[in-house]
Computed example of a mutant assay.
Amino acid sequence: MWNRDSVPGQPAPAKFDRSGFANVNGIRLYNAEVGKGSPVLLLHGGLAKADYLARQVDALKAHHRVIAVDTRGHGRSTPPACPAAGVSANVIVYPKIPPADRFPR
């Protein structure tokens, strides 16, 4: 049986070099990145947010450009107008995230 005391604690938030928002279809989609190399897009699950991916970010950032996103209605991203728009709807908009050199400083 699930016991709240047996759930591991949340790791420290992921450290990113750049972060910002992409305005996509009326939603402010939070995105952050760190590292250089081939891009890796990290998607959090369930009721999480990009900050929860610290261990994955740390493992990948030495050799990859790691991009993490708070999906619609999670973390710092605003919710969609249609509640049925879930994670699959996010995947469609990721190509619209600005390149690293266009993130706000």
Rank of each mutant, 00 (worst) to 15 (best):
T71A: 12
S19Q: 04
N23Y: 12
R76Y: 05
H44M: 02
F16N: 03
L53M: 14
H63M: 06
P95K: 14
A100M: 15
R18W: 12
L53N: 08
P98C: 12
L47M: 12
A32K: 03
R18I: 10
G73N: 02
P8A: 00
G73A: 01
V87H: 07
A14V: 04
V93S: 12
G75A: 10
G20S: 12
V24S: 06
A50F: 02
I27V: 07
D58N: 09
K96G: 10
V24T: 08
A100E: 15
V7C: 02
I27S: 01
C82R: 08
V91R: 10
L41V: 11
A68P: 00
S77P: 08
A12C: 09
I97T: 12
H64V: 13
S38C: 12
N23E: 14
V7G: 01
E33F: 03
P39R: 00
N90I: 03
G35N: 06
A81M: 05
L60I: 13
G20C: 12
P80K: 01
L29Q: 11
G35I: 06
R18Y: 11
G45N: 03
D101S: 15
L41W: 03
P95L: 14
D17K: 02
V24K: 05
F21R: 03
A59G: 08
A50H: 04
P79Y: 01
G46I: 03
S77W: 04
L43E: 10
V40P: 01
S38L: 14
D101Y: 14
T78W: 09
V69Y: 05
S77C: 05
R72E: 15
F21D: 02
C82Q: 06
S77H: 05
P39G: 00
I92F: 08
R72L: 15
N25P: 10
Y52K: 03
G26C: 00
G86P: 08
L41I: 10
P99D: 14
A100G: 15
I27N: 03
Y52R: 05
Q56M: 07
P8M: 00
A84N: 05
I67T: 06
A22P: 07
V69H: 04
R72P: 15
A62R: 09
E33K: 07
L29Y: 09
G9F: 00
G35F: 03
K36L: 07
F21Q: 02
A68G: 00
D101K: 15
I27L: 04
A48Q: 05
A84E: 07
L41R: 01
G73K: 01
G35W: 04
E33R: 13
Q56I: 04
T78I: 10
R18G: 07
G86T: 06
R55V: 07
V69E: 06
Q56P: 02
V87I: 12
Y30Q: 07
Q56Y: 04
F21W: 04
T78P: 12
E33N: 10
F16D: 02
D101T: 15
N23D: 14
K36D: 13
A14N: 03
R65K: 15
G46A: 03
P80E: 04
T78H: 08
T78F: 09
R28P: 13
A50T: 04
V87S: 08
H63N: 13
R18P: 11
N23F: 11
A14E: 03
S38M: 14
Q56N: 09
D58M: 05
R55Q: 07
K15R: 11
K61M: 08
R102Y: 15
E33P: 05
Q56E: 11
H63F: 09
L42Q: 00
G75V: 09
